[in-house]
Structures are given as structure tokens and as C-alpha cells.
Simulated assay, not measured.
Amino acid sequence: MRTRAEGLASSLPPLLAEAEQLANSVLTGSHGRRRAGVGDEFWQYRPLSVGDEARMIDWRRSARSDTHYIREREWQGAQSVLIWVDASSAMGFTGDASRPAKSDRARLLALALSVLLVRAGERVGLANLGQPPRAGRLSLVRMAEALTGDALDGGEYGVPDTTGLPPHSRAVFISDFLGDPAAVEESLGKATDRSVRGALLQVLDPVEETFPFNGRTIFESMGGGVRHETLKAGGLKERYLDRLAERKGRLDELGRLSGWLYTCHHTGDSAQAALLWLYSALDRSR
């Protein structure tokens, strides 16, 4: 899975997860902020001014003119990003053997997102591991080991884990969000209390979006806790689609009220498009 995730990540430009509150997380990394400060990347030359020390002069650039120039570097800050991946039984569903299960797509996207964030110098963590976000490739190894496990052990439906969210950080919740929406609202409330913003990615199978059922049908949850048999499945379609649209609308509204961004991704669609959206969402939710 890590090889697939890195392959997916390698085709995208390095988009940066920018922070709204950076004062408490200033580090030297590969994440430029387009202003002078501590960092490795060159930003600009400027003329020597009163108060500048002689050791700051770039003598090679200054030799080409009658003015002494200072070589400024970019101020760089590393942002903490915590990712929660729904491990509930519901995520094991797929409506077609040719499509990945929702859990497989969610794990792939979480790891690909982590690959890009680490390349950009960010600190990344997996809420499921119960560990704080860390920088470097070793964190990817730990995450890959956790995400490649076969077992789904989160009950019927998942609830976002906000236990290890650092204040003023970013977060990503990846789930089908088909459980109790009040639990998601509570999790977003806790995140907002810590000045955490981020992205909600709802992962659904196309079957869950179109409800292509007719006649006698038995509906059973992946965990076996819910079972419903009907002789007229087609008669449920309109009500089901209305409820699904209502759920999506509530997630979008919860996101907007909390300063988060929401979108729905289908397992039959491009994983690359979802990954690009995630990076853009992290960059915009500031």
C-alpha cells in the first residue's frame, strides 16, 4: 500500500499545509512562508541597512555592484497534521468486486496524503495510533504498518478520534460518515475548541449513492447489527436518497461552521483527484 501511495503522491506538486497559528511551531523545514526568517531556502537579496551585521553580507553578490547585499532566507514553519481513518465495519463495504472497499481507498488516501506532507516538511500523525504528529520518513513507516492491517475494529460505524489533536494544528477525518451525525458534530466541536481546522472526506461506494435495488432485498450492515428485509426495495429509493442528501448537507454545514471543508469521494472515481482535493483543502482551511 505504501508503494501505491507514494506512486500516487509522486504525480502531484508539493502542496503545503499552511498554518493559521505558526508562532508556536516555527521549525526549519522545506515549507517556505515567503518572508524573511530562519530557514534553508533562498528568498531574496536586499541592500545592507543600518543594524545588519557584516557576517550577513553575501560577498559574491555584492562584488557585482557598488552596494553590499544581504542574502535573506525564507521563514519556514512545519505544521502538525493529524489524520483519522475510520476503521469501522461499515468501511469494509464494496458494491462491486472490481472496486476497492471504502476502507482500502481511505487508507490509501491517508498514506498518500502523509507522503506528500512529509515531503513538504510537515509533522504528520495517525489518530488511530494514539501518537503525536512527527516529521520524517520513520513516521510513514509506522503509519503504513498501522494502515495495512486487515482488521476493521471500530464497531458498526466510526467516530472521529480527537484525543491527540495538538492546538492550532490541522486535521483530516476520512470516513463514510453514515453513523450518528451528532458524534461527528461533537468531534468537530472539540477540534474547534483547540483552534484546529481541516477537511472532512466522505468516502462512499457508488451503490450507496445510486441505490440500484428493486424487489425483494435484504439489507444488512457490515457488522451484522442492523438487518432489514423488504419486498419492494425500489419504494425506498426516494426516501433513502433524500436522507443521504440531508446527511451530506449537514456535514457540509458542520464543516463551514467549524472552519472545515467537506467533500464526498466515490470509490469508483480517481484517487488522485481526491488526494489533490485534500491538499488543497488543508491549504485553504486556515
Rank of each mutant, 00 (worst) to 15 (best):
F93D: 09
A87P: 06
Q131M: 05
D104Q: 14
F177G: 02
R250L: 12
P160Q: 02
A19F: 03
P212H: 00
H68N: 05
R4E: 08
V118T: 12
I57P: 05
T148C: 04
G39Q: 02
L244R: 10
G37N: 00
R247N: 09
G92C: 14
L152I: 10
V26R: 13
E253N: 11
F219D: 15
K190L: 03
F173V: 15
S80T: 12
G255C: 07
A112Y: 15
R134W: 01
A233Q: 12
R247V: 06
V118M: 09
R34N: 07
K248P: 00
L82T: 07
L111N: 14
L165W: 04
E209S: 08
G179T: 03
F213A: 01
P14V: 10
R60M: 00
A151W: 10
D66I: 00
L116C: 07
K248Y: 08
V115Y: 04
G29D: 15
E253C: 08
P133W: 02
G224R: 07
A97W: 10
E122D: 13
L278C: 09
T217D: 08
G121I: 03
H168L: 06
G95Q: 06
L27N: 09
I83L: 13
M56S: 14
G125R: 01
R239A: 11
G235T: 11
L48I: 03
L236Q: 13
P13L: 14
W43R: 07
L147Y: 06
A97E: 13
R137T: 15
L147A: 01
V50M: 12
L129C: 15
R142I: 00
G268A: 07
A183I: 04
L113F: 09
E185Q: 15
R61H: 03
R64D: 00
F219L: 08
S49M: 03
L48P: 00
G223R: 14
R256H: 11
R170H: 12
S11A: 15
P212T: 00
E253T: 03
R250K: 11
D269H: 04
V172F: 06
V207H: 05
W84Q: 08
A151K: 09
A146P: 06
S11R: 13
P166W: 10
A146D: 12
T230P: 12
R284F: 00
G95T: 03
L201Y: 03
H228R: 06
K102W: 04
F177S: 02
H31E: 09
V159R: 10
G164I: 06
R284A: 07
L200I: 13
E253H: 12
A183E: 15
L257F: 00
V85A: 05
E209F: 00
E186Y: 04
A273D: 14
M222W: 06
D66W: 00
S139I: 05
R247L: 05
R105D: 12
A135L: 10
A87G: 07
P160S: 06
L251C: 09
G215L: 04
M222G: 08
S195E: 11
